[in-house]
Design a protein around this nucleic acid. Structure first.
Lengths: 211, 211
DNA sequence: AGTAGCTTGTGAACGATTTCACAAGCCTAT
DNA sequence: ATAGGCTTGTGAAATCGTTCACAAGCTACT
């Protein structure tokens, strides 16, 4: 666990993830070298932004030439911590939880769903791809045994905070929540919340205030 | 369509949506008045931030007293453009699209799904709650007839850009995409992209660089 | 070996957003 | 009617993030 860096803005990390995706496309097309300008054009940003983002972590390019695609992929993967897979648990096997559990975009990028949980006995045992929904009461024992590092929450708003507390008590330090509820976590735990209604409301605002 | 305002940061709009949620909770609990400090505490921000956010749009409180909960709810709904419902189409009836089509959090907040589309004939006709999946070829005619204002995309990465182009050509000006692909839209069209893999990668970064 | 043409890496300038701090204003109690 | 206790609204300051602009360095060509 290295943390020699001052503090990196979330927007920078988000862009690194984006660059990684483009780099993989360049690699698939057999391009061996890429400039900050090309990367910027694909990603809707500027070449200076690309270079600044990378500069926080080191110097990866060759002046006059650009970046070696394979090397930069490896470097960004290391920066993001993607050299090894991350085991993930999904809590909530409703429509959204079930869709996430079978979402190929997770697995294909190194996030392996190792368990799906629900408190509804009617859902327990249901097959979701290769997994079976497990009882929420098994959560702590399973965490102790399999050591997932990330929890994805797809539960109703009311249920969210108690589950966050359990997940944190069980030792997880990163949570991605799709529950439409504000959640509190202690310091040292990273919580990301995706709220679909908020996303639509931002769109409604933009439509309402368009000129 | 009023746009007398200079330019409001997206972070401000996002927080307004959050405040609205808290205000509704306060209202449900029968609290009639709320201070910027209370609102800030629920939302993990500061009272100055709350007041500044609101001040861009007017002055809604009473000094010494705070804000009237019902009035502020009405004001924020008007700011966000939520006084009337927004018809929405969902494109892609795979796992994610189907889950979104039946997601109650949309409808309950004034976003009405008026159509779900898929190019796969095997999916066309399937029931999703009260809706039936329609053929993607019907999209343009349906848009012309029902005038949805927002498109939600839940399609594979490769399919996303052509669909964006069709949706824009048909006159829509706001798109929420769950496709894991970078998308381009012409000026005047608002695009928001939610990328689940990126969200997890930000968490992986935070775990990797935790002290 | 020298020159021309690119491209990186990075301080410094700029712009945007958040926080501070306080005058102005409302309500209650006396 | 006045004082005391709160809370808003908002310029000003501070912080944070992006863009600029250019020296340094690499490659290719002659």
């Amino acid at each position: 666990m290295h943390s020699p860096l001052k503090h990196i803005a979330e927007s920078t990390v988000r862009r690194l993830s984006l660059y990684l995706r483009f780099l993989e496309e360049f690699e698939a097309r057999g391009q061996s070298t890429v400039s900050s300008g090309e990367l910027a054009r694909s990603g809707g940003t500027t070449s200076a932004q690309v270079r600044k983002d990378l500069s926080f972590f080191g110097s990866f390019g060759k002046r006059g030439l650009g970046y070696d695609v394979k090397d930069l992929i490896a470097s960004i993967r290391e920066i993001l911590g993607l050299e090894h897979p991350w085991p993930v648990v999904i809590i909530g096997a409703g429509k959204i939880g079930a869709a996430l559990a079978q979402y190929r975009g997770f697995t294909s990028r190194g996030f392996h769903v190792v368990g799906v949980y629900d408190s509804d006995p009617a859902k327990v045992g249901n097959a979701l791809g290769a997994l079976q929904v497990r009882a929420l009461t098994d959560l702590e024992a399973d965490i102790a045994q399999h050591h997932p590092r990330i929890a994805v929450l797809a539960v109703p708003a009311e249920a969210a905070q108690p589950i966050v507390d359990r997940v944190v008590a069980a030792g997880l330090r990163a949570i991605l929540s799709f529950a439409p509820a504000p959640l509190l976590v202690p310091a040292g735990v990273t919580l990301r919340a995706v709220n679909m209604a908020t996303e639509l409301e931002i769109l409604a605002y933009s439509l309402t205030h368009a000129e």
